[in-house]
Design a protein around this nucleic acid. Structure first.
Lengths: 217, 217
DNA sequence: CTGCATCCACTTTGATACTG
DNA sequence: CAGTATCAAAGTGGATGCAG
């Protein structure tokens, strides 16, 4: 397998050699949420040709970013997961995601929104300073989209789907007719008070403080 | 000009739509150092085909990342520069560069090292906390490579070539026979004391504290 | 000389079909 | 479920041409 590379002794160039090809970072994005099967990745990445997914996974494995695991007895099958090296790409994803978000206008017709993208966006908005010492758990509902966040004395964990254990606060956004369900839309609704809550109200303010960027002055 | 896009309402996907194509981020890297002419970019990006450079510049201009300026009277010609939006890509470049550096082994034969890459690497190693309140200026020589760093009460500026005004300390690395001149090689030499200094010796320690990452424990 | 445009061989991608 | 096979279309890399 020949790899075309930039031929520069430079961290950026090397990074692009390893994860700069089409679809690669989106695959990594999905895997940062949790290990996935081949078909999970396919459905999370609408439009990816199956042979490209297959090729990228092999390249990322070769690059030491992704690990291919064959699950043993219980639920047999193949699972792809990030290696520790791959997990260290998270700051990169967050930096790119933040920049891209700032360039992201309204959703264009045909735009898909993926639950994984929403969780990435929540992580990109996380404010460690505000989180110091905070403990709590939240579940977010916006359209079909469900995600959760858990803070344990400032330590942050998040994912798609319902919270692993009963959350302190369940928040459901009331969306306008043509609002697209995204993390942004959720935050917008929450700030406008357009959320149904199950749990103590103060935790909503905590959530907004810890999980949204303060407005620029 | 039709643009192929990922069709996801996601900051990361949008970022990749805008600057994810081959060579794009390397062009941005060179422009973060200073505005460039077309031919400067060509020589800083060995191997880039001229039509690809031309296409990328147009796409980046369309994306609002790069600005094409026609210099007026004095030295007539076209200059490409980053827009404010483009400048905000710097955290992305640093994050990618840091990750890539950690995956960067020894230089492979044929690897080119560009002065711009060295400056990016220096910036990626900058420790704002250590820099607080510090003032000083340094000029680095390693092989043919010359770069500078200026700290003004913690505010950081850097670039390729000699320092804009007389530096407080000029440091010249004494390289081994087959060491490739890079920022890394410079730091390695400096830590081993293999540098010739013109200026006060204490400033070398300051430099190493502010411009290199502390070792992991 | 700078700042590209054009041409062509080759590679990669996207779309679809098919298999263990 | 987890891919491989096939093929047209698009993109890349390299060389060259050319106007201002």
């Amino acid at each position: 397998m020949k790899r075309r590379d930039y031929g520069q002794y430079c961290g950026l160039a090397r990074a692009l050699d390893l994860v700069g090809e089409r679809w690669a970072l989106l695959i990594v994005r999905d895997l940062t949420i949790r290990p996935r099967r081949y078909t999970d990745l396919q459905s999370g990445l609408p439009g990816i040709p199956t042979n490209v997914l297959s090729t990228r996974l092999k390249e990322l494995e070769q690059a030491g970013v992704v690990e291919r695991r064959v699950a043993p007895a219980p639920q047999r099958g193949v699972v792809y997961a990030l290696t520790p090296v791959g997990q260290e790409l998270e700051p990169v994803l967050l930096a790119l995601g933040r920049w891209g978000s700032s360039q992201l206008g309204d959703p264009r017709p045909g735009d898909v929104i993926s639950p994984d993208a929403a969780v990435l966006n929540m992580r990109a908005n996380f404010q460690p300073a505000e989180a110091a010492g905070v403990t709590g758990s939240w579940e977010i509902h916006v359209g079909d989209l469900v995600a959760y966040a858990v803070l344990t004395d400032g330590k942050f964990e998040s994912g798609t789907g319902p919270a692993p254990s009963t959350p302190d606060l369940v928040m459901t956004a009331r969306l306008g007719a043509d609002d697209v369900p995204s993390y942004r839309a959720f935050v917008k609704a929450a700030k406008a008070g357009k959320v149904d809550l199950v749990g103590p109200r103060e935790l909503l303010d905590t959530f907004l403080r810890v999980f949204t960027a303060p407005k620029a002055a």
